[in-house]
Amino acid sequence: MAQPATASHLDAAQADFYRHLLRQMLLIRRFEEKAGEAYAQGKIGGFCHLYIGQEAVAVGAIAALRDDDYVFAGYREHGHALVRGMSPRVAMAELFGRSDGCSRGKGGSMHLFDADRLFLGGHAIVGGSLPLAAGAGFAIRYRDTDQVAICFFGEASVNIGAFHETLNMAALWELPVVFLCENNRYGMGTALERAAAVWDVYRRACSYDMAEETVDGMDVLAVHESTRRAVLRAREDKAPTLIEARTYRYMGHSMADPIHGHYRTKEELEEQKQQDPIEKLRMRLTDEGLLDDSQFEVMAQQVQGEVEDALAFADQSPNPEPDELYTEVYRS
């Protein structure tokens, strides 16, 4: 691709990297929009939690990892799976509950897994993934490798027992884990201020004498920087970090929930959208002369094509065979 004339101080590799981050955020946004449509059409069932608005967190953080690091997430995890390299086809097929899905239709929207890419779920009990990630961290120490485990969770998890138990043990045993709290300000419909005595999540770390950071979760580059430091701390110093990324979801808690209403206003939502992470990075790249409108258009069309393809693939993927019901309950 021909580089536009630029006044940027970034070198070519960095420029490519930033464009890559933009493309990933765009992919998540388009994928989630399509998922929302498919949900409305009844093609996706159950609970479906969309990541629109929060793309910068998964994209910025996972970009700081190596391929042999472990990634754990909650139930709003489509974006994390895609960033980790799961193909949109396989992800969408799982959302559709089809046999070509990553979990062969048995997991669904909340249980995406990709063992090959060390994307380890997809956990739908609030706080449930925190000790699991610590367990991976424990295994890393046990085997004495320099891997890292990262755990994404929402701010509503920080009031649950598992959060405190896990952070305590992670600090006590010096586990190489990054605890990345995606503070989107609402646990379903309850604002953090109505659920927590301490409103700054990062301050919880001091209870366990753990390193902490707070970062603008709408800024993918800031998230990336912050996570990079925490990963380094884990990899080299075997020390955990609690990162609070302040972000915002544009959609309701799940597809079954209102986007705004009693718990937040439309005005608040519109105001937050002014901080859109995709627009923010696009503007920056445009300003630096690294991406013009036509280049963005090409990128957007590619992404759109990829998502359309995923949808078509999921649509024609067969349902699991009836006898799949009883397979994979036990490993024989």
Binding site: P131, G135, A136
Partner: peptide
């Protein structure tokens, strides 16, 4: 030896098993 934190040391065991150990 663990602290008295059954939920999370059980979960740490499960996490370790997810990545191949046999707790």
């Amino acid at each position: 030896d663990t602290p008295i934190a059954e939920l999370s040391f059980a979960g740490i065991g499960v996490g370790a098993a997810m990545v191949g150990l046999r707790p």
